[in-house]
C-alpha cells in the first residue's frame, strides 16, 4: 500500500509503525514518529497500525540555535 513519509509517497508492506521503522532502518534513539499529526511514543509503535494513505512524519536532531 501507499503511505506518505515526510511528504514523500512511499510503498509500505507492513501493518504497524514498528514495521515501517524496520523497513526504514530507523535508529534506536534520536528519532520521533507522528502519524496523521499525532506523536506516537516508541512504546506504542507495535500497536499502532498504518492504513492506506497514512501521513507519517519522522524527525531527528539537527543543528540549530
Amino acid at each position: 500500500m501507499k503511505i506518505t513519509v515526510n511528504n514523500k509517497e512511499t510503498e509500505f508492506d507492513g501493518t504497524s509503525v514498528s514495521d515501517l521503522a524496520a523497513q526504514l532502518q530507523l535508529p534506536e534513539k534520536g528519532v520521533a514518529v507522528a502519524v496523521n499529526n499525532e506523536m506516537i511514543p516508541r512504546s506504542e509503535w507495535q500497536a499502532t497500525p498504518l492504513a492506506e494513505n497514512a501521513s507519517v512524519v519522522i524527525i531527528k536532531a539537527a543543528c540549530g540555535g
Partner: peptide, 11 residues
C-alpha cells in the same frame, strides 16, 4: 540547543 528536521529516506 538543537533543532529537529525531517529525516531523508536515504539518509
Amino acid at each position: 540547543t538543537l533543532a529537529m528536521k525531517r529525516i531523508e529516506l536515504d539518509d
